[in-house]
C-alpha cells in the first residue's frame, strides 16, 4: 500500500472513531444516576421550604440544579400512573397544601414507607413554583 493511501486510511479510522465517540458519549450520553449522586446540601424539609418562601431568588441561586438531602415528617404519599410523589407539608395557600414535593424515582422500593413517618430523602432540586419546592429523581436514604 502506498504511503498516501496508508495516511488516508489512518485519517478515516481516526475520523470514524471520533464520530463514534461523540455519538455514543456526548450526543447519546446517559442521564445521571441520581441515586448515586452525593447531596450538595443537607437540611430539614422545613428549612428548605422556608428558604424559598423567604427569598425565592436567593434560594434559586443556591439550590436549583443541586442534589438536596432533606429530613422531615412525610405528610402525604400520592401515586399517579407513572410515579409516586412524597409531600412534606409546611403551609397552606391557594393550591391547598404547600411544602416540598418529591417525585420519586420510578424503580424506588417504597412499599414500606408510610405517611406520618420521619424520613430522609435526596433529590434533584428544580425550583419553587410559588407553592411547592420541587425535587425530582427522589430516593430514600436509609
Amino acid at each position: 500500500m502506498k504511503k498516501w493511501m496508508k495516511i488516508l486510511v489512518l485519517f478515516a479510522v481516526i475520523g470514524i472513531a471520533a464520530a463514534s465517540y461523540v455519538y455514543v458519549f456526548v450526543y447519546n450520553k446517559a442521564h445521571p444516576d441520581y441515586r448515586k449522586l452525593e447531596p450538595n446540601f443537607s437540611l430539614s424539609s422545613e428549612s428548605c421550604f422556608e428558604a424559598f418562601k423567604k427569598d425565592a431568588s436567593e434560594a434559586n441561586q443556591r439550590f436549583i440544579g443541586q442534589m438536596l438531602q432533606l429530613s422531615g415528617t412525610l405528610n402525604q404519599i400520592e401515586s399517579t400512573e407513572k410515579q409516586t410523589i412524597f409531600y412534606f407539608i409546611h403551609s397552606e395557600g391557594m393550591f391547598g397544601n404547600e411544602g416540598v414535593r418529591v417525585n420519586m424515582l420510578p424503580d424506588e422500593q417504597l412499599s414500606e414507607i408510610i405517611s406520618g413517618q420521619d424520613i430522609t430523602i435526596k433529590g434533584y432540586c428544580t425550583g419553587y413554583n410559588q407553592t411547592d419546592v420541587i425535587l425530582e429523581h427522589g430516593s430514600v436514604i436509609y
Binding site: V26, Y27, N28, K29, A30, H31, P32, N60, Q61, I64, G65, T126, G127, Y128, N129, I134, E136
Partner: peptide, 24 residues
C-alpha cells in the same frame, strides 16, 4: 418549572436549560 422538563437525551436537556431557556 423549566428544569422539570424531562428529555429523552441528557444532552438536549442540558442545552435546553443552560443555553436556550437559561433555567438558572
Amino acid at each position: 418549572l423549566m428544569k422539570s422538563f424531562q428529555f429523552e437525551k441528557a444532552l438536549m436537556q442540558e442545552h435546553f436549560n443552560e443555553n436556550y431557556v437559561e433555567s438558572h
